[in-house]
Amino acid sequence: MSELNELYQQLILEHNKSPRNFRVLDRCTHDADGYNPLCGDHYHVWVNVENGVIMDIGFQGNGCAISKSSASMMTAAVKGKSVAEVKALFDTFHAVIMTKIGDEVPDATIEALGSLGALAGVREFPARIKCASLAWHTLVAALNGAGSSISTENNG
């Protein structure tokens, strides 16, 4: 049960139950749709960027506890950060959850993630990594203006 407890930490369960910023933005500069066709998880992310800073962010959609809590924690983490900072944060987050089972993740790296570090346990569950990264890929697609829709099967 220890790996399961690591995955389903209280913080994650709490974000799943009461997701933050779970709303449509009335006014936004960027938005995108994120979809995992293999499991049906589906989110929409809206962001309002002013002078290169994320002033507001919201998301809506449906999916498992991992994808929903990850989306919720992401929105809380990126608000007020610059687009460049957000992309760097995503790179760190992505590197952590993609770390091979058995390989060490430096404590400093986990610390740099703040509360997002709670999702590090997902790396023990390879089938669930895409759940944790779906909202992030959606946010990055929105910021890049890469189009209105992304799929986990295009970008891993």
Binding site: Y8, G63, C64, F125, R128
Partner: peptide, 12 residues
Amino acid sequence: AHPHDIGTILDR
């Protein structure tokens, strides 16, 4: 609980 979470927990 969402089906994927059910699946992961049952798998363990």
